[in-house]
Design a protein around this nucleic acid. Structure first.
Length: 254
DNA sequence: ATGGCGCCACATTGGCGA
């Protein structure tokens, strides 16, 4: 089973690239972030025609998440239960015997921003909920844009980013708490190239200079991690004309 | 040097992302 996550930064703009991605990579499941589409504008028919069932939760301008699956999606959950949030950042569904949780974790803007505190509260709520989810679903994958670079090796210039948003201690501690639930960072199950990132700034030729961060992740519960054979970043999608600033990430499990 | 790019909308400028 091939699982991908991709922050498309507008599904309206990126739909042709997504359809190409589906046709060429042939993933079983794709988790999308930053669709930036209200539900009545979601391209359901196009994606169904491409062979995928869809579950989605979106809003105008910001946020928006979706799960695509070749096989039926059941028990769709939108948002974190008992956590009031206007922002559409979470969708979960069951595919076969596997629970898929798609997240667009808040950016936080800067460590002295109210949005940073919202991010930390949000991460606490996510972690508490996932603890329960894992009890019900031993096979669970948490995919998406985490807006956290877990370690210095996930940052092109750790000195410049030290204690900045996406790299700060409390954010990294929140990521470690997710791992503490029994989740594994699939990317680090394997040897990887130095300076592997999933996001590059549009400005200053960030991609060409590989000025990036690894902030998009696929975390797997222990039973899924045990069968994981591959985890990688799909840099080729970032090379296209008019790319998302994020590249898709993909893991293969059985 | 606090810009740079890309996307969106109460759009031709400002908010936001990371």
């Amino acid at each position: 089973m091939k699982l991908s996550a991709w922050n498309v930064n507008s599904l309206k703009v990126r739909l042709p690239q997504l359809l190409d991605f589906l046709a060429t990579r042939n993933p079983d499941i794709v988790c999308l972030q930053e669709t930036k589409l209200e539900d009545h504008n979601f391209p359901k028919a196009e994606l169904e025609f491409a062979g995928y069932q869809v579950a989605f939760s979106g809003q105008k301008t910001y946020n928006g998440v979706a799960i695509l699956s070749k096989t039926p999606l059941t028990d769709v959950q939108i948002g974190i239960p008992d956590f009031a949030d206007e922002q559409k950042r979470v969708i979960a569904a069951t595919v076969g015997d596997t629970r898929i949780v798609c997240v667009y974790i808040p950016n936080g803007q800067s460590v002295d921003s109210d949005k940073y505190q919202y991010k930390l509260n949000w991460l606490s709520a996510l972690t508490a909920w996932l603890k329960k989810e894992l009890k019900q679903h031993p096979r669970l994958a948490l995919l998406g844009d985490y807006n956290i670079a877990p370690e210095d090796r996930d940052v092109h210039d750790p000195a410049a980013w030290k204690d900045q948003v996406l790299c700060s201690g409390p954010e990294r501690e929140a990521f470690v708490k997710l791992l503490g639930l029994g989740l594994k960072d699939s990317f680090r199950l394997f040897e990887q190239p130095e300076k592997s990132f999933s996001w590059w700034d549009y400005r200053m030729m960030g991609f060409r200079r590989n000025h990036g961060l690894r902030i998009d992740h696929i975390l797997l519960s222990e039973s899924l991690a045990a069968s994981c054979t591959e985890s990688s970043v799909d840099r080729d999608m970032r090379k296209l004309e008019r790319p998302s600033d994020h590249a898709p990430v993909t893991a293969i499990v059985s």
